[in-house]
Simulated scan of single mutants.
Amino acid sequence: MKKILVTGANGQLGSEIKELASHYPNFDFIFTDIDDFPLDKAQEIITNFNRIQPEIVINCAAYTAVDKAEQDQEVADAINHQAIATLATLCHDSGAKLVHVSTDYVFDGTSPVAYSEEDQPNPQSVYGVTKLAGEKACLKNCPESIIIRTAWVYSEFGNNFVKTMLRLMTERDTLSVVNDQIGSPTYAADLAQVILTILDSPKWEPGIYHYSNAGSISWYEFALDIKEIGNKSCDIKGIPASAYPTPAERPAYSLLDKSKIAAVYGIEPVDYKTSLKRMMYQLQAAGGR
């Protein structure tokens, strides 16, 4: 039985891995979060890693407050970069496998086509800069790692765009949503399944992979889908990102090319709307969490 350490286990992705854990009886999962495995303290990472002695690490933990990171650079770097450098070194030295989750925010959003793993990153925010630094440290200290870049993550767990929209559509008659930032959402349950599929695979091919759900939409179009599936009556207006300024700059176009993960692991992305319907059904069944 392989011992798998999951960091950030109470977040969206970690929570979805918990939901799937019982389907993998050959894996012994150790779920940790900030209270018992803080990533902003290097010595505690080392102590906890040596205590657990995992064979595989899935790093779901990250500093994801994109706007707050513009002022909170030191903490964002500690969690998104320095902690990954430490984890990667520990994995390499012990022979443990490492799966690290990264983001579309490593790109500047100026590409006319979907970003491949070979495209040059050029982050425009502190969050993106720290996540890219984490990727580089991961591959430098543990070249045998797998990094999965994802985008627009949502789940029935935690806080995210889908749950926020559902709440606002109930509270308000009208909403304005940005219509000139293009990407593809990712249901965290699908991403969790992708990671466990890779870990259960007979092969381990290190490197960077892209995964999100299939489709290309704006946040505005995503909101319209949420309205339709949720049977809401709120009036939704599309606005340019320039009308809704934020401290951190977001990529205007961050669609991810998923052909590599399909070619190497046979993983085909699920259509985003299919996954959105599934998530909203699960959310309703769980009473809104």
Rank of each mutant, 00 (worst) to 15 (best):
T110L: 12
E156C: 11
I229M: 10
I34F: 09
K203V: 14
H23W: 02
Y211Q: 07
I58R: 06
I58C: 05
E268C: 11
N179L: 02
S145V: 06
Q71M: 13
V153K: 05
I267L: 13
Y272I: 02
T174K: 06
N122V: 02
P240L: 03
N179R: 06
G183I: 03
D190S: 09
A285H: 12
L255G: 06
K273F: 08
G14V: 03
V57A: 07
E55H: 11
Y63M: 09
A286M: 11
Y105C: 15
S275A: 15
D67M: 12
Y220I: 00
F27C: 06
A88W: 08
I195T: 04
V162G: 00
I198W: 03
A262K: 14
F37D: 05
V113L: 08
E268P: 06
S216T: 15
E70S: 05
T274P: 09
A114C: 05
P185E: 00
N80V: 08
Y187H: 11
D28A: 10
S201K: 08
A42N: 14
L168N: 12
P206F: 00
M280P: 15
G158P: 07
E135N: 15
D93M: 12
A76Y: 05
Y154Q: 00
I195L: 10
V57C: 10
G11C: 06
F29T: 04
P240H: 03
D190P: 13
I17T: 07
L276S: 02
W204V: 04
P143W: 00
Q12L: 13
G14E: 02
A88G: 11
N80C: 04
D33Y: 06
D72Q: 08
T32S: 01
H81E: 11
P240D: 01
A214T: 09
F222P: 05
G230R: 10
P185W: 05
Y220S: 01
I226A: 02
Y253C: 09
D257Q: 07
S22G: 14
S259E: 08
